[in-house]
Structure formats: C-alpha cells, structure tokens
C-alpha cells in the first residue's frame, strides 16, 4: 500500500504543466461552447418549458457521454503513457524497487482522477452555461431553481461507467509505444459507438457506449444500475488483466 502511495504521488507530480491537466477543463468547455451555440439559435426551445434545465443538461450530457468522455479518456491515457514511451522511461521506472503493478495502478488511478475531475467540471460548467443561456434567452423561462443534485448524480454515474473504457485504454496506451495505436483504437471505438447508440441494444454491450445509458431519455429503456454493475465488473477484470499482462512484458 505504501508502495502504491509512493507511485501515485510520483505520478501526480508528473502531471505538472501537461496538456493532460489542461484537457480536464478544456473538454467540458468545448461541450458547453457547442451548447451555447445551439441555444443562441432562437428557434430552439429545448422541449417543454417545465423541464428546460433537464433538457439543457440532456443536451450537454449527450455530447459528453457519447463523444467527449470516451475521447477524453483516449487522449488522457495516451498522453500519460506517451510521457514514458517518448523518454524511454519504463526502464527507469521498472528498475526501481517498487512492485511493477503499483506503477500501472498509479497510472490507472490518475486517469480515473482526471476523468472524475473533468466530470465535475462538466456539471459546474453546465450549470454556469445554463445561467448564461438564461440571460441570453429570457423566452426559455429557465428558473433559478437549478437541479444541482440530479446533475451531479448523472455526471457521477457516467464517470463510474466510463471506468470500463479507462481500463481498456490504460492497457492499450501503455502497451503500445506508438501513440497512433491508442488514438486509432479510440477513434474506431467512437465510430462503432455511434452505430451502437443508434441500434436497439448496442448501448448495453459496447463499453464505449455504456455511459450514454445515463442520458435522461434512456431511463425507461435500460436499467442503468445493471449497466453500471456490468461496467464496473468489466473495469475490474480488464484493469487487472491489463496490469498482469503489462507487468510481465520485457522492458526494452
């Protein structure tokens, strides 16, 4: 445990002045900017007026869960792994008297931390964006009674489900020296994701699609709790399996 804490604290220090940290707020900012553009279109009414906040959040969350979140995880894991690949740092890390798994686990934990932080930033930005839209579009009659807790809950659920993707990408990014493999995998997954989302049952089976099950409209169709449990089990299995595979490899 002590060794894991040491590896983790080293991993956190490595984040200093990195793009990986900047992306934590840049990604949600982009999602919010797109939504601001949509809201500035006077024709757009965001559904029934009573649920305007939920409708607004649903718009933000669609972009987030379907596109931004999986790509965010792809990017963050690739950036963190590339810091080691490009400097051939694995030989240094793995020649240290720490169990190899702690280094891998620290990377996963930092990836999870960054994803959680970005999810939280998204919720905060969504609310701020809503308030901005409220002043821009008085016709929408957005109340000041912001449903903060439900927003947080949905963001948290999407985060927990996305851990499955994180486990898969942590392995791919660290296993393959070329950053193109990690990005390629993320992009192929995103394309399949779009197909899976538009099919009847795809969301339940494709890891990259699972976070979309938290969207308000999906309530009646899928059992989010079941999907969350499956995603967690998937995260644990692929995480452990990836860790074992990775730490047994020759370090060249």
């Amino acid at each position: 445990m002590n060794a894991l804490m040491r590896a983790l604290s080293a991993e956190i220090l490595k984040l200093r002045r990195t793009l990986a940290v900047a992306m934590v707020w840049v990604t949600p900012a982009v999602v919010c900017f797109i939504n601001l553009m949509i809201a500035s279109d006077q024709e757009n009414t965001f559904g029934s007026l009573e649920d305007t906040w939920m409708a607004l959040a649903s718009n933000h969350l669609s972009f987030w869960t379907i596109l931004a979140l999986p790509l965010f995880i792809t990017l963050e894991t690739a950036l963190m792994a590339n810091a080691e690949h490009s400097e051939k740092a694995w030989k240094h890390l793995f020649a240290m008297p720490l169990p190899r798994w702690t280094v891998y686990a620290a990377k996963w934990l930092v990836g999870a931390g960054l994803t959680a932080a970005s999810s939280l930033v998204l919720v905060v930005f969504t609310i701020l964006n809503g308030l901005l839209i409220r002043s821009m579009r008085p016709d929408l009659n957005l109340s000041l009674d912001v449903p903060v807790l439900p927003f947080l809950l949905v963001g948290a659920k999407a985060f927990v489900i996305s851990l499955f993707i994180l486990s898969i990408h942590t392995y791919i990014a660290n296993r393959y020296r070329s950053i193109a493999v990690a990005f390629g995998a993320g992009m192929v997954a995103s394309v399949i994701n779009l197909a899976a989302i538009s099919s009847d049952n795809g969301i339940q089976y494709f890891p990259w699609s699972m976070p979309a099950s938290v969207l308000p409209g999906m309530d009646g169709i899928f059992n989010v709790t079941t999907i969350t449990l499956w995603a967690l089990a998937g995260a644990a299995v692929t995480g452990l399996f990836g860790m074992i595979l990775f730490t047994r490899r020759d370090v060249l």
Partner: peptide
C-alpha cells in the same frame, strides 16, 4: 540497493 542509468536518460521535459 541498486541504481542504474540505462542507455539514454529518462527525463520528463516539462518538469
């Protein structure tokens, strides 16, 4: 009790 420098230095340029 061992330290090593193997081939090229492994450093993080942004630190």
């Amino acid at each position: 009790q061992v330290s090593a420098l193997v081939e090229s230095p492994s450093l993080y340029p942004q630190l």
